[in-house]
């Protein structure tokens, strides 16, 4: 390869050119850095603008809202929030929503953990078909199940209870949880289980003391998804409830009165539905970056 090596003056010139290039490039990469930040900022603005507008509305009186467009609340008022937080018909919506979401998370995770373990560790009759069938439930449009659910829960006397909604959301949340957890569990070497059994751990003790801590970030991410899909769903939740367990999402439809829509209350109620989500993301923010790929990279 000696023939292909550059002669010394050439090499010097080349290197000088490269250094030059580098200087130019570092200038260019600084501008690239700024472009990058600019684009990111633009996207963040795009995300925040509609939310800001909602917030803006929620602090305006209805006369100000309808009086003309103002970019920020000129006549700042918290009357809508006060109304929502003092009237039981309003705030019970939040209580109901949070109740069934938590119930659903608890039910889903506790049945999904052993099931996901079985799928990740064992072969058994029908395992592949079963897994595939589970996943098809993720694809079932809630609208398809609307009517049967209504009739089923009505018949068994669960209509208008939190349990009804929690169970209904199991339709998509359990398969989702099994699927996500299976990914994380398969990432844990099987030797861990074997060592634990040799050390004399019983299965339940091994599962709770050793295995669950090992996939804690997977469980965190799973709970995040369970919360997310149960919290945002409206169709089933509002169909299976009337007054006692009505979710906030369907309480919000009552803002449509005879005199038109109560924009201020709608905006304030909407703003309040965003808050639990922010709290949840804040807690799992460090896991999201890693865990969102669901153990499947």
């Amino acid at each position: 390869m000696s023939d292909s090596l550059p002669t010394t003056p050439d090499a010097v010139r080349q290197r000088a050119a490269a250094a030059d290039n580098r200087r130019r490039r570092s200038a260019r990469s600084a501008s690239r850095q700024w472009r990058r930040r600019g684009l990111m900022a633009a996207y963040i603005v795009f995300v925040l603008l509609p939310i800001y507008w909602l917030l803006n509305m929620s602090f305006q009186s209805n006369t100000e809202i309808l009086g003309g467009l103002t970019l920020w609340p000129e006549d700042f008022t918290t009357e809508h929030y006060a109304k929502i937080l003092t009237e039981p018909s309003w705030y019970m919506g939040y209580v109901n929503s949070i109740t069934y979401v938590l119930m659903n998370m608890l039910i889903s995770i506790s049945v999904a953990l052993p099931a996901a373990y079985a799928f990740s560790r064992y072969q058994f009759i029908g395992d592949k078909h079963l897994f595939f069938w589970l996943l098809t439930n993720l694809m079932a449009p809630p609208a398809v199940f609307l009517l049967p659910y209504f009739q089923l829960y009505y018949t068994v006397g669960l209509f208008d209870t939190h349990v009804a909604v929690a169970l209904a959301h199991c339709l998509f949340n359990i398969p989702l949880a099994v699927w996500i957890l299976e990914g994380f569990m398969s990432g844990v070497p099987k030797e861990i289980d074997e060592t634990a059994f040799i050390d004399g751990y019983s299965f339940p003790r091994f599962f709770v003391k050793i295995f669950i801590p090992m996939i804690s970030s997977g469980i965190g991410v799973t709970l995040f998804f369970l919360f997310m899909f149960s919290w945002v769903e409206l169709l089933l939740a509002s169909t299976l409830t009337s007054t006692n367990a009505q979710p906030i999402a369907s309480v919000m439809t009552q803002t449509k009165g005879a005199s038109g829509i109560d924009w201020g209350a709608l905006a304030a109620a909407g703003t309040l539905t965003i808050l639990p989500g922010i709290v949840v993301v804040y807690f799992v923010r460090n896991h999201i970056a890693k865990g969102f790929a669901l153990g499947r990279t």
């Binding site: 090499a11 010097v12 290197r15 490269a18 250094a19 290039n21 580098r22 200087r23 490039r25």
Partner: peptide, 14 residues
Amino acid sequence: LFDGEVVNALPPEA
């Protein structure tokens, strides 16, 4: 230094 030339600022590709 590579062959007596300071390369501190040179990136790996150069």
